[in-house]
Amino acid sequence: MHRVLRAAAASPTDAGLQEVLADIERERPKGSHGPAHRLHALRALRPDLTPARAADQIYVLTSTENFEKLTEVCEWTETEYEEWLASTLTAPLLHS
């Protein structure tokens, strides 16, 4: 869905879709702060990691582009992607 929206928004004649996509992209980083602050409140974040830095990592790693490349280009299953994402987020964010 996100890929279709990006493709449609690329059309110079559809400023409305471009704005919708821009709104989504502006909100995505904010959405990463909730999980990061929750992990911090649970004292689950690594001690050297601030909630803001954790949110940055969550934002980047959960990008739609990563999902699309791994599932469509690399032909991973959604389960393989979910397992990769869980382990990839766990290593840099949480206490070992």
Rank of each mutant, 00 (worst) to 15 (best):
R53M: 11
W84T: 10
S32F: 04
I24S: 02
P12N: 04
A7R: 13
L89F: 03
A36R: 05
D48E: 15
Y81S: 04
L94V: 07
L17A: 04
D23M: 08
W84A: 13
W76G: 02
R3N: 02
H33T: 14
S32D: 05
G31L: 12
R6T: 10
R38N: 10
A36I: 12
E78S: 08
L89Q: 06
K30F: 07
Q57C: 06
P47H: 05
S87M: 11
S63C: 06
S11D: 15
A22M: 03
T62E: 10
E82R: 14
Y59E: 12
F67V: 01
L17T: 10
S11M: 11
V20S: 05
V60N: 09
D14R: 10
L93C: 05
L42R: 15
K69C: 04
H40T: 04
H37I: 06
S32L: 02
A15D: 14
A36H: 05
L17G: 08
L17H: 05
E25T: 15
E19I: 08
L70P: 00
Q57I: 15
E78D: 12
E80S: 06
R38P: 00
R6P: 01
T64F: 05
T77A: 07
S96E: 13
A44P: 00
D14F: 10
G34F: 15
E27D: 09
C74Q: 11
T64I: 06
A8W: 01
L89I: 14
L85K: 08
P35G: 14
A86K: 12
E27I: 08
R3M: 01
R28C: 09
G34R: 13
A7F: 06
G31F: 05
L17W: 02
R38L: 15
R3P: 00
V60G: 10
D23P: 00
L89R: 09
W76L: 09
S63G: 14
T13R: 08
V20D: 07
K69A: 13
A22Y: 00
L70Y: 04
A8V: 12
K69M: 12
S96M: 04
H33N: 08
V20M: 08
T62G: 10
